[in-house]
Every structure is written in structure tokens, then in C-alpha cells.
Simulated scan of single mutants.
Amino acid sequence: MAERYTSDLADVLRWVEDDPELGGGEIALYAFSFSTWVALSVLRRLDRPPAALVCDSGPMFDIGAGLQHFARVRKPTLPEAQRGGAGHAVYRSCFSLLCRRMLAVRNWPPDLSGTPTRLMFVAGGQDQVVPESQIAPVADRYARAERWTAPNALHMSALRFDREEYQERVLTFLTGAFAHPTRRSEAAKDG
């Protein structure tokens, strides 16, 4: 969600959509974990958004709680003074505060009411990093979004642990997204 990454992704999407080999066709965006925040945020910036966005293993609804969680997950790698008690509490607070300040997040999740992009959210049923309980409220914010929890998956591993159902669900979703034109393909016809 940081400005640099969001603007970089917007530039890449504009470059791809202007590629003559695409021929005005549709594109999909596939994001994992941290990149799901950026991918969801970038949709508001694009004149011709992609037809579909698949968010796998993210994003979290409660950013502050998510950052606190990431700080706890990192606990074993910290110096001993920051692994417990007041040292860890100070570390978690500073980590969360600095990250939120750096990200400068406002109005999360973003309002995408005018965006035709179809959304799919995939959570891992065994994900300890970004649990389904954090992804569900983001997905539920968008009435047309599809949401699926891969029952055996850890973080970013649904394709590995729930392969057949993952492939079926994602390919069906993408087929549907490409079957229904968005403003992007309509703009290409008008242009």
C-alpha cells in the first residue's frame, strides 16, 4: 500500500495494457500475501482496471492487529532483550507504529464501487500468518467478490495442499471474468 509500490504496480499494468501484442484484450492480476494489499489498492488508480484480481493469502482487514501479529511471529529471531516482557511490548508497538506511518493507510479496505474488476480471495485454512478470519472481512466488503478457504493450506500454499480444488476454482473464476467484458475491453472498442 506504500505509495512507491502502488505506483510501480500501476505503471506495470499501464505498460502491459498498452502493449500492442495484447490487442486490447483483458488481463488479470494475481497477488500473494503482502502484494494483495497493493493489488487491491491499485485498482482505484487505473482508468482501465484489469478484468480480474486473485488475492491469495491476504490482505488483512485489521492492519494494526496484522502488524502486531507479524511482530509476534518474528519474536524468535529478535535479540533476547526484545523476545519477552516489556522489551517485546515496546518492539511490537514501535514496529506497528512505524509500519503504519510508512504505509500511510487511509480508508481501508478501499472503496471499489466504481471498479468493474472481479475479485477472488483465497485463504489457507491452516494459515497462521494471515488467517482466514482476517481475509474474510475484506472479501465481504465487496458484494460480488468470491471467497474460498483452502482447508489444508498454510500461508501461500493452497495450490500445493489443495491443488485440484484450487485449480478448478481459480480457473473457473478467471474464465468467468474474461467472459464478461469490463470497461477496459469496452474502452478498446470505442477507442
Rank of each mutant, 00 (worst) to 15 (best):
G58F: 03
A52R: 01
Y91A: 04
G85Y: 08
P109Q: 07
G58V: 01
L53M: 05
M60Q: 08
R101D: 15
N107D: 08
C55H: 02
G84H: 13
R74W: 14
A71H: 03
G66Q: 05
M120H: 02
R118S: 05
S113G: 06
G58Q: 06
G124L: 00
W108N: 00
L103M: 12
F61W: 12
S96L: 11
F95T: 06
S57K: 03
L78Y: 02
A89Q: 08
Q82S: 08
A104I: 15
T115C: 09
Q126D: 10
G125L: 04
H88N: 05
G87M: 00
G84R: 15
R92T: 11
D56Q: 05
Q126F: 10
D62A: 07
C99S: 14
Q68R: 13
R118W: 08
R100Y: 11
M120T: 06
A86G: 12
Y91G: 02
P116T: 08
V130D: 03
V105D: 04
F121G: 00
S57A: 14
V54E: 00
A123Q: 00
L67G: 01
M102I: 15
M102A: 14
A52P: 02
F61D: 10
M120G: 03
L98C: 11
D111M: 02
V122E: 01
F95V: 10
G124H: 05
R101F: 15
A123P: 01
V54A: 03
P116G: 07
A65T: 09
V73T: 13
G64V: 15
V105Q: 09
G125S: 03
E80T: 15
N107V: 12
G114K: 10
R74L: 12
A123C: 02
L103Q: 10
R106Y: 15
V129F: 14
S96K: 11
F95W: 07
I63E: 08
F95C: 02
D62S: 09
G66C: 02
A65D: 12
